[in-house]
Amino acid sequence: MSEGVSKRFMFVNRKAPYGSVYALEGLEVVLISAAFDQDVSLAFIDDGVYQLLRGQDTKAAGMKNFSPTYRALEGYDIEKLYVERESLEARGVAEADLLVDVKVLGREEMAALMDEQDVVIGF
């Protein structure tokens, strides 16, 4: 893999967890992408910010709570997590409500960052 050219991959998450399979599938793709030594970043915009909310408890809903897995990303060397400020504010969510360390970016910065990527994959 060392001979390969590293590309900038951004995975854009904009859906809440549990109501559809997008959030979980996106997370699995991110974990798998870590095996390919690329420059991976994650963006959370719109309802995607709900994926990172603390205190998720799926017991009564009978589903698997995959929110702890976001905390494993660091061990996979995936440390670039970006959350859009406007999306947080529109939902009354504070950075302190999130279960991992993220970088909060304004919409314009987020758009610029997306524009710098080699590959953008949305979930």
């Binding site: 974990l31 870590a34 095996a35 698997k64 995959f66 494993a72 061990g75």
Partner: peptide, 15 residues
């Protein structure tokens, strides 16, 4: 128990 996934081998080795 902590992360709800089984780690990839590379991650396991490091941890």
């Amino acid at each position: 128990n902590e992360y709800q996934i089984a780690p990839a081998v590379r991650v396991l080795t490091k941890a």
